[in-house]
């Protein structure tokens, strides 16, 4: 792989990793809140979270570009606190990715928390476990698979992002030039050989990642079967 493409790969992985970490930190409480929420506003928040699923990425990118520009408040605030312009920066594409991949992290977690229900948490509370304790001793181990799914989907979706980054990140090598943008560049330049190389590596990489998720979520068949049989024999003891 050629040097500039390698740099694009590193930028992509950095962006996706940081985005995934941020998404897990803000996505977990948001998913928890949505799972426990009974108010009418729940559907509105859910719709906002799900919006990136249906919205053309360029629409989100366009509004973010405006917001991040130094003429507008978010961009201004960023410039005042960090001394750097937000638009066309690595930070901009991470923020964009966080918003764009939000549903991929929040939705599996929310579903897992809803399925878990309150009964085991009530049992934990009556044994003296406080809320934080209950989260780490009961919720996390029981929804581990959903956390893995959420993190992997968030990561993979961020790697595959194009439209938002094109709008708010531009194409600065080492800063905002990610794999999907580099691929587009090669096609524009009719350099199909390098485009093929990038495309096939993205394809295989995503395939491997997704296969790994599904494999991790697979019930461990032989053990489960043995467990079921054992359970049956115990019931008729």
């Amino acid at each position: 792989m050629i040097n500039s493409d390698l740099q694009a790969l590193i930028t992509t992985l950095e962006m996706a990793a940081l985005t995934t970490v941020i998404l897990l930190i803000i996505g977990t409480p948001l998913a928890w809140y949505l799972a426990k929420m009974t108010s009418r506003f729940k559907v509105i928040i859910e719709a906002v979270v799900a919006l990136p699923l249906v919205l053309p990425p360029t629409v989100l990118g366009f509004y973010l570009l405006i917001a991040f520009s130094p003429e507008h408040l978010p961009g201004q605030l960023w410039q005042q606190t960090t001394g750097q312009q937000l638009a066309f920066s690595f930070s901009a594409i991470v923020i964009g990715s966080v918003l764009y991949s939000l549903p991929f992290v929040v939705q599996p977690l929310q579903k897992a928390f809803e399925q878990l229900g309150d009964s085991l948490l009530e049992a934990g509370a009556l044994l003296g476990a406080g809320p934080i304790d209950r989260f780490f001793s009961i919720v996390l181990p029981l929804t581990k698979a959903s956390f893995i799914t959420a993190a992997s989907l968030g990561f993979a979706h961020t790697v595959g992002e194009f439209g938002v980054i094109l709008m708010i990140g531009g194409n600065i090598p080492g800063e905002t030039r990610v794999l999907s943008i580099a691929l587009f560049d090669h096609v524009e330049a009719f350099d199909y050989a390098r485009a093929h190389l990038l495309a096939i590596s993205l394809l295989i990489g995503s395939m491997v990642l997704l296969a790994a998720i599904y494999w991790l979520n697979l019930p461990k068949r032989p053990q489960d079967k043995a467990r079921m049989e054992q359970k049956e024999s115990l019931t008729y003891e």
Partner: peptide, 12 residues
């Protein structure tokens, strides 16, 4: 303490 109708033991 409370013992429920279904045991509510922790599966994990």
């Amino acid at each position: 303490g409370l013992v429920f109708q279904n045991s509510r033991l922790f599966d994990h």
